[in-house]
Amino acid sequence: MKEFKVLMVDDEEDFVRTLDERMQMRNVDTSVALSGEEAMKKLEEDPPDVLLVDLKMPGMDGMEVLRRAREAYPGVQVVMLTGHGSEADEAEARRLGVFDYLRKPVPLDQLMRTLKAAYKKKIEQAMVAASFAEEGDFESAREIMTGNTKKK
């Protein structure tokens, strides 16, 4: 039984395939997309627990993947892993609700800790949202899943 599911999105195929192999050895259920467009298709077919996404890619970039994923799949936590990030990029990603923003080359144990923390957040959010939904408060449940909690 794998621990949790991660979709890795990066156009650097050598990097993402090697990382894929190492994560599978660590009992993580992984899949790979080599573009933003492919990632959106895979998200629709089989949403992961965590999305690990590169920032700069040809076609749809990581920021757009983050934006769309947070809108359409609010339960999926997104971690950005990039060799390109500026401080402005990081600020924008955090505004859009990224769980964490890491810079390449990151040690694998640090990446694993971040992915596990993202998965934990997903489970906790789902549990709280479920308790609101059980009481019929679907608006609050939705707010918790998207992270857009309004003050009441």
Binding site: D14, F15, T18, E21, K56, G83, K104
Partner: peptide, 17 residues
Amino acid sequence: THEIKNVLAIIRESAGL
């Protein structure tokens, strides 16, 4: 420099594997 970071990431992951 961004490209070099990708190269470093590939070296690190390959050695790790």
